[in-house]
Design a protein around this nucleic acid. Structure first.
Lengths: 161, 161
DNA sequence: TAATATAGTTAGTCAAGGCGAACTTTTCAA
DNA sequence: TTGAAAAGTTCGCCTTGACTAACTATATTA
């Protein structure tokens, strides 16, 4: 049996994969320039990352050619996106954080939280939804609780962390 | 008014500060060797980090001398520790994650989650506690929910993220 | 107190991941 | 169809943060 040693991707490379997947989904083709724009990185940095990802067989890439994800790369990218969505969803729908802040935080946290915790977050969302259906809206209760106890002076007043 | 431009600390430097605070709290003095041990890093890396932190006036450091936190460094370190504890606490007491996994994840996530979200997590813990007192034990309910829906085959079976 | 073990530092190296400037390819409009 | 403009690449450089090996300072103990 041939074992391909695949080391865990760095946060940075995961970001590139994620961006490529998102761009591919949107417009069918991921252009180097757009990746740079999305990740707020120079075009030359993108080239470097693409070379690395190609070495790892995660993207099909030849200079001046099209950029596509390999099957392996697609799978990896989907995992990242999935993690991202679960985390963001938790922030928004349970914690009541605004989508923009939640998205940015998810971007960073998606590289920090392992499968067990992400799974638990997912379950928790499901739990809240189930509870919601059976009468208790957890998110709403929490929001009310925050309003009563912390938000008296205004939205998110008194942040001192 | 003199403004000291203090750039945000890198994750790595935050880790050093945190380790120094924890060691100081435990044994009154943080030794270079112990920092290396805690962070699983070479002694020379510690020296390098201490030099950087000293430049930023966050530690009092002279070669071969004692290592202590400045007031500023102490304040920063406490923020990091506070963030860490809130996040870990959420993982353990709400999500029901084991303390070891939770601690490691908190270590990584504490650099990724901003004040708003950490605050919300803290509030959520308080919310759960308040609810707990008034009859509904959220954490217990969630655990039950997980057991009923996901843990049928064993603890954390079916992790596919 | 001298010898040695331990702690700490220095110097040199490396890899990752960024950048800008200059160059090459491709595209598109006149 | 040709010549700019846009897109992409290459090159050289920088920073961060880690490492090892070799050195120096401090502590300990016989």
């Amino acid at each position: 049996m041939t074992v391909t040693r695949e080391r865990a991707l760095s946060a940075s490379l995961e970001d590139y994969l994620e961006a490529i997947l998102n761009l591919s989904a949107g417009s069918k083709v991921a252009r180097s320039k757009d990746i740079a724009e999305v990740l707020e990185v120079s075009r030359s940095s993108v080239t470097g990352a693409l070379r690395t990802l190609a070495e790892k067989q995660l993207v099909n890439y030849k200079p001046y050619g099209f950029i596509t994800l390999t099957n392996q790369g697609w799978a990896q990218a989907e995992k990242v996106v999935r993690r991202h969505n679960i985390i963001k969803s938790f922030f928004v729908s349970i914690l009541g954080v605004d989508p923009t802040t939640a998205g940015k935080a998810a971007c960073r946290a998606e590289h920090a939280l392992g499968p067990q915790i992400v799974n638990r977050l997912l379950h928790f969302i499901e739990f809240a939804t189930a509870n919601n259906n059976s009468g208790l809206d957890l998110a709403k209760e929490f929001t009310k609780f925050c309003e009563n106890n912390f938000d008296k002076v205004g939205p998110d007043a008194g942040e001192q962390i």
